[in-house]
């Protein structure tokens, strides 16, 4: 099949960038979307043109590195599918596709379709963890975990941090990403001691990174390749509100003993 692509080209973070048009003949329906771009890039290199930069790594839908908007839909908009697992059989001859990078102030473009998502790492660094120094853990079976809680924690923990939720959100909110981590750890007994601190720290960091608010629209849930539910946002809201209203100054007094 033959496709027409309109691709956002931007040399670097400083460049203004604009859409370029490419004709891609000879697309095989068994190719993945990224393989189609590989083929286009090979042709561009042979012609002496700069290949299109896009992030990708595992190409099996789990590392979260790939992602772009295809016709205004994150990862192309197919249920539970990252762009690396999207196959060309979903498209037909003559289709025109618009490829754009994730758009958010907190995800500045590095080049073409590749963006910088370090803001997500900083949100995790702020509180998305359980403090457990190596070697200090009790036996794995010491604390039973209700199966339902383990399953709900796993549902939320499936997040791959790709950023599709931010990209799809009309507000550029990171609520689904943040909610997924808060919900994952809030469902486990191991996550309880730091539950309040975590919610406060992560949500404050989320704000500092320049992500806007959630307005319960649901585009993120639809775009999420791991099908994480809006429910995690409610959970993180609840945790944050509770933590914010019960927060008190720390009582520990410093000094040597």
């Amino acid at each position: 099949m033959k496709l027409t692509l309109h691709v956002w080209r931007q040399k670097n973070a400083q460049d203004r960038g604009r859409m370029f048009r490419y004709e891609v003949p000879g697309v095989n329906e068994h190719m993945s979307f990224l393989e189609m771009l590989d083929v286009l890039n090979e042709r561009l290199i042979e012609k002496g043109e700069d290949p299109i930069a896009f992030d990708h790594d595992c190409r099996e839908g789990i590392c979260g590195m790939c992602g772009m908007m295809i016709n205004g839909k994150a990862h192309g908009g197919f249920k539970g599918t990252t762009v690396c697992q999207l196959h060309m059989r979903h498209f037909k001859d003559g289709d025109e596709l618009y490829l754009e990078p994730w758009r958010a102030a907190a995800f500045p473009v590095i080049k073409d379709l590749a963006v910088n998502r370090s803001s997500f790492d900083r949100i995790i660094a702020a509180g998305g963890f359980i403090s457990v120094p190596t070697g200090s853990a009790p036996d794995g079976n010491a604390i039973p975990v209700r199966k339902l809680d383990a399953d709900l924690a796993m549902d939320a923990a499936a997040c791959i941090g790709c950023g599709a939720c931010v990209a799809a959100c009309p507000n550029s909110a990171a609520a689904l990403f943040v909610g997924a981590k808060i919900s994952h750890l809030a469902h486990l007994p191991q996550g309880q001691p730091e539950r309040d601190r975590r919610a406060l720290a992560m949500i404050r960091q989320m704000n500092r990174e320049g992500f806007a608010n959630c307005s319960n629209i649901g585009e993120c849930e639809a775009a999420c390749p791991k099908e994480i539910k809006l429910e995690v946002i409610a959970q993180s809201n609840a945790d944050y509100i509770k933590a914010a209203f019960t927060e008190r100054p720390e009582t520990a007094i410093g000094g040597a003993g």
Partner: peptide
Amino acid sequence: ALWRLQRAARPIPYVKKSNTHSTYASRTM
């Protein structure tokens, strides 16, 4: 305040954006 935050959060708009899974009501608040 949230509207301003949202504006700042996406300074460059999409050329194409499709919102298919949200309700009209939710996007027009």
